[in-house]
Structures are given as structure tokens and as C-alpha cells.
């Protein structure tokens, strides 16, 4: 049986992990390669690196990070941030990343997804969607530019469009839940999951191990992503996986 995946996410700027990660015993808590190794040992099923560098040099440094992670670890990982054209995909995928994640660039030009899918296959194409519930519209709207810009896209419609263009997976972040630590956005995750046939990674809101049980059981997510809950040692990947196992969720 296919298992549910737990995915820690690391924000990397100019080759360094930002948002202080609290691990004892690390020589260098800002080193993405060392952190990746720690998460691999804890049983992470995949990793996501979000490159938030603003400069060209920062992006080049990210390619070095990708190369080092690929050289050392035997688990898959996705790189997002700064993927605006086919060349950007080639750079990180050839350096050893397994998937690329696109967000704003895909909304601005959905053909980007099919260009990547034609070249590398749909399985490498992750479309990241930042969605927010708009009560007056009675719908989830897609936001771009790090959540600053509201678009005309309904989140469900955009997810369908992304799949049609060749996305192999959707990384779905609830802007309502993100940072709340009150659990994943179950209605959003369920709604998007039912609208498409590609896997969904739920993101935003993880505050405890129980939240993971719900997102898999109630919302039928295929994978769940979290950052701070793992970085700040509120729980660990292995604790979450043990809890899931005790509750009958299929995990590795």
C-alpha cells in the first residue's frame, strides 16, 4: 500500500537555512545539507527546499546546495522558488533535484507547466497553490507573489487547470491556516483533492501530531508538509510517524 508522506520544508536564502532551526548537536544549524541529513535520519519521506534568495548569486548558491543534497541523500526532494522558465528547471533538476515547484510563474503563464512536463515528465512538476477563503465570494481564491496578490483564479479551478497543463502534484498551502498551528485546512484540502486525480501535499497549520492524523484521515491528503513544528522541535518526524502508525495510517 502506498504510504502517506511527511515532508519537512526548509526555507533557504543565499544557501543558508532561514527561520532558526533548533537542533542540538548540529555544527551548523544554518547548513541545509546538514539539516537535510538530520531529517532523513528521522524518517522524512521527502524534503522541500524553498529558495527565497532575491539575487542571482543566491540562486546559484542554491544549485550548489541541491548538488550536495543529491550527492549525500537517498530520498527525493523538491526545489521551489525562482522557477520561472524551463532553464531554471533544467538547472535544479540536472543538479539532482527530483521535482521543481512553481507558484506565481505558473499562474502568470500556465504554459510553463506544460513546457516542463514535456521536457521532464509530469512527475517532476509540482504546482504550489496559495489559497485563501474569501467569505464574501464563498470560495477559495489563489494568491501569488508570496500571498500578496489576489488573482481571479478560484483555487479549485486553478488546480484543475494545473493538472490539465501537466502538473504531477499539487502543493497546497492554506493562507488561512498557515502559521495558526490549529491544524491543516481540511475543507480546502479535501475540496482540491476531490477535484483532481494527482496527489496533494497539504501545507499550513500543523501544530501537533494529531493534525497529521486528521489531514490524512478526514481530508485524504497524500502528503503533509510542515516547517516550524519540526524546526522548533515541537515534535519530530519520527514522533509524528509513530503516532500515525498507532492510528492506522499507512506510513513508511
Amino acid at each position: 500500500m502506498l504510504t502517506k508522506r511527511i515532508i519537512p520544508c526548509l526555507d533557504v536564502k543565499d544557501g543558508r537555512v532561514v527561520k532558526g532551526v533548533q537542533f542540538v548537536g548540529l555544527r551548523d544549524a544554518g547548513d541545509p545539507v546538514e539539516l537535510a541529513r538530520v531529517y532523513d535520519k528521522e524518517g522524512a519521506d521527502e524534503l522541500v527546499f524553498l529558495d527565497i534568495s532575491a539575487s542571482h548569486e543566491g540562486r546559484e548558491t542554491m544549485v550548489d546546495v541541491v548538488r550536495q543534497v543529491a550527492a549525500e541523500l537517498a530520498i527525493p526532494f523538491t526545489v521551489g522558488g525562482g522557477i520561472n522558465k524551463l532553464e531554471d528547471m533544467k538547472r535544479v533538476l540536472r543538479a539532482g533535484a527530483d521535482k521543481v515547484s512553481m507558484n506565481t510563474a505558473a499562474v502568470l503563464r500556465p504554459e510553463l507547466i506544460s513546457e516542463g512536463a514535456d521536457y521532464f515528465g509530469t512527475q517532476c512538476m509540482v504546482v504550489a497553490i496559495d489559497a485563501k477563503w474569501e467569505p464574501e465570494l464563498n470560495a477559495w481564491r489563489v494568491y501569488t507573489h508570496g500571498g500578496r496578490t489576489q488573482t481571479e483564479w478560484d483555487a479549485i479551478e486553478w488546480a484543475k487547470k494545473a493538472q490539465e497543463m501537466g502538473a504531477g502534484e499539487i502543493l497546497l498551502t492554506s493562507m488561512n491556516a498557515d502559521g495558526s498551528k490549529k491544524g491543516f485546512d481540511l475543507p480546502l484540502t479535501k475540496a482540491i483533492g476531490e477535484a483532481v486525480t494527482i496527489p496533494i501535499i497539504a501545507s499550513g497549520g500543523a501544530g501537533s501530531g494529531e493534525d497529521f492524523i486528521e489531514v490524512f484521515r478526514v481530508a485524504q491528503a497524500d502528503a503533509a508538509l510542515a516547517a516550524s513544528i519540526f524546526h522548533y522541535k515541537e515534535t519530530s518526524v519520527s514522533q509524528v510517524k509513530n503516532l500515525l502508525k498507532d492510528n492506522g495510517v499507512a506510513i513508511r
Binding site: L2, T3, K4, D45, T122, G168, E169, I198, A223
Partner: peptide, 19 residues
């Protein structure tokens, strides 16, 4: 096939850790 023997749809690609 996008549907199993009982007609239930399942996710494609087959993506993740399987035994």
C-alpha cells in the same frame, strides 16, 4: 487505469513510498 476494479478513482502518478 484511473479506476480500480470497484470503480473507485485513485491518484496518478503512483507517487511515494510503497512496499
Amino acid at each position: 487505469p484511473y479506476k480500480d476494479q470497484s470503480g473507485q478513482a485513485y491518484k496518478i502518478p503512483h507517487m511515494g513510498w510503497n512496499k
